[in-house]
Design a protein around this nucleic acid. Structure first.
Length: 184
DNA sequence: ATTGGGATTAGCT
DNA sequence: GCTAATCCCAATG
């Protein structure tokens, strides 16, 4: 018996993460299987929501099932799936996707041919999917954006998150065991 | 008003 | 391994 989408995205990010691994994320013609996620909650000093709401992170405080997209280092767009209830300020950073559909378009956007590298890393997958600021705040299920749950549970691993300097030791990175599409 | 740092990446050394 | 790309926010003066 699989839980429905709404029941999962209203969970807290660390509980939702393993349940969303393996699900199929779609934007328009491009789709792929989420293989790597990181959880960020409001009590986490490394989270954008830690110091409260700003114009940038406002979608992070919407109810679970929305998207939060931000610009990293002034260069790369990063995609989050918001979790929890309205006002909780938590989300899952999507770090890697296994491409399934729209591969040619992804290759063109990325100027990369190797399918293993197309959606490896948060900044790379947004480029492949054509995701940017305009997608921040969208609700999954609208505007050609969808997320289809994996019919069966997936074997996964948990470890420390990547690229942060505070709360490094929090084990909140989740990835599908043995997937060669994971960022590292 | 200014400054420093970041949930990153590609390209070069 | 190091650096540049140069945006958004928080802390400081």
């Amino acid at each position: 018996m699989t839980k429905v989408f709404e029941e999962i995205v209203c969970l807290h990010a660390p509980e939702a993460a393993p349940l969303l691994l393996g699900s199929t994320f779609r934007v328009g013609k491009c789709a792929g299987r989420i293989v790597e996620l990181e959880a960020y909650t409001q009590d986490d000093p490394s989270s954008h929501s830690y110091r409260g709401m700003t114009a940038r992170n406002e979608p992070m405080f919407m109810r679970g099932g929305h998207l939060y997209v931000y610009l990293s280092y002034g260069v790369h767009w990063c995609l989050n799936i918001v979790t929890g209830n309205e006002g909780e300020g938590e989300a899952l950073l999507v770090r890697a996707i296994e491409p399934i559909e729209g591969v040619e378009l992804m290759k063109k956007r990325r100027q990369v041919d190797d399918i293993k590298r197309l959606c490896k890393g948060p900044g790379n997958l947004t480029k492949a999917f054509g995701i940017s600021k305009q997608h921040s705040g969208l609700l999954i299920g609208t505007q050609g954006v969808s997320l289809e749950l994996s019919p069966k549970s997936v074997e996964y691993r948990v470890g420390e998150r990547i690229g942060i300097s505070i709360a490094k030791e929090w084990k909140r990175r989740y990835w599908i065991k043995d997937s060669s599409f994971v960022s590292r």
